[in-house]
């Protein structure tokens, strides 16, 4: 079944077309990589899919439902979660409070429910344990190291129970041990049925982790396929070397 499908997405900033007719299809249950040189429109693509930027043209479909121009929280409710390039947590909330921000659906009863609702707190602790940061639950997020914040951000996204998770440079700015840990987590979460779309510049990570790789250049995909195939594709080399 198709997870995410975009048709002819286009977005221009001033005269520059950051995303230019991007048609992409992700199948359910895969770890997809999204690579491409700087400025090829990967993050803008993320922002359009998650509703943070409105496209000039084109459609976004998730599980065959049209979610183009949905507000970001409705995209989240549809089952798409995301992390940000420069990891974003709520600095002056505690780790546990960070975990309890996510809203799965807007029901009055749930909103009025106490923050310390036992079921939710248990779910939060479960994810914190899987990230290995459960001992920090009472610390303010701003006191965490960058790597810990990255783990917290991913854990908080998981609280919304997304089926598709967009990761924007999960390995950016973290040490090699943590990169391995994050890669392991992504594989485990994928084995449990979650689909991933990962923007990443660390090629070893992309090639080692992903089932399928899409290459962006100048705002649209120029090649895609299994890592081994994409690695040999001359168009990809050309895009990266900028001939």
């Amino acid at each position: 079944m198709s997870s995410l499908r975009t048709e002819g997405l286009t977005k221009a900033f001033g005269g520059v077309r950051a995303v230019d007719g991007a048609t992409v299809e992700l199948r359910d249950g895969r770890i997809n990589g999204l690579i491409g040189p700087n400025g090829s429109g990967k993050t803008t693509f993320f922002n359009i899919v998650t509703g943070m930027i409105r496209p000039d043209a084109g459609r976004v479909l998730y599980r065959d439902r049209d979610i183009t121009r949905h507000t970001p929280h409705r995209v989240a409710h549809a089952g798409i979660g995301r992390t940000f390039q420069l990891c974003r947590v709520f600095p002056r909330l505690t780790v546990l409070e960070n975990m309890l921000v996510a809203v799965r659906r807007t029901r009055l009863r749930e909103l009025l429910a106490g923050l310390r609702d036992r079921g939710e707190v248990e779910r939060a602790r479960h994810w914190l344990r899987r990230m290995g940061i459960e001992h920090l639950e009472d610390a303010e997020a701003r006191d965490l190291s960058y790597g810990q914040q990255k783990l917290l951000e991913l854990a908080a996204v998981l609280m919304a129970e997304p089926d598709l998770i967009l990761l924007d440079e999960p390995a950016g700015g973290v040490n090699p041990a943590l990169i391995d840990r994050i890669a392991g987590l992504v594989r485990d979460l994928n084995a449990e049925g979650r689909t991933f779309l990962v923007v990443e510049h660390n090629m070893d990570l992309v090639m080692g982790m992903c089932d399928h790789v899409i290459v962006f250049d100048r705002g649209a995909p120029i090649a895609e396929g299994p890592p081994s195939v994409v690695r040999e594709d001359p168009r990809v080399l050309e895009a990266y070397l900028g001939v």
Binding site: A102, V103, M159
Partner: peptide, 28 residues
């Protein structure tokens, strides 16, 4: 302050776009 609604409001104070991306209907 003790409700999930309150957690959402505080999240808006800290980082509104991030809260929205976690499914918080920030406008409402």
């Amino acid at each position: 302050s003790r409700s999930r609604f309150g957690a959402g409001l505080r999240a808006i104070r800290e980082d509104e776009d991030k809260a929205e991306s976690l499914g918080v209907p920030t406008g409402a």
